[in-house]
């Protein structure tokens, strides 16, 4: 797994995720990165990566909407000017 720091350089994070507990994709996977978003600007997040943790919060066992809420809140919070993603290139078999 790789720890990737994404600085909040744009008003939006700019990623689309698919997956979550009780679906064919057990952990959220990045399916799109939007041009001009913070994720695109950081250029380290890639389509296809599976997100294991966000700011130290594990997404394992979290359903899609819960995982999406955790990521959205980590981006919205004013406490930090960045987000830390723990990602892996491969599907974690659970």
């Amino acid at each position: 797994a790789t720890l990737i720091r994404v600085m909040k350089t744009a008003p939006t994070l700019g990623i689309a995720i698919e997956g979550g507990a009780k679906t064919r994709q057990p952990l959220p996977r990045i399916v799109t990165i939007q041009r001009g978003g913070s994720a695109h600007n950081c250029s380290k997040l890639k389509v296809g990566q599976v997100i294991l943790e966000v700011n130290g919060i594990s997404l394992q066992g979290k359903e899609h909407r819960e995982a999406a809420r955790i990521i959205a809140e980590a981006f919205k919070t004013k406490e930090k000017d960045h987000m830390d993603f723990l990602v892996t290139e491969f599907n974690v078999s659970l």
Binding site: A16, I17, E18, T23, R24, H64
Partner: peptide, 16 residues
């Protein structure tokens, strides 16, 4: 586990 995953529903997609 392959069969199990095939019976699971596909996930929705959320833009963040």
């Amino acid at each position: 586990s392959c069969d199990k995953r095939l019976t699971l529903p596909p996930s929705e997609i959320t833009l963040l």
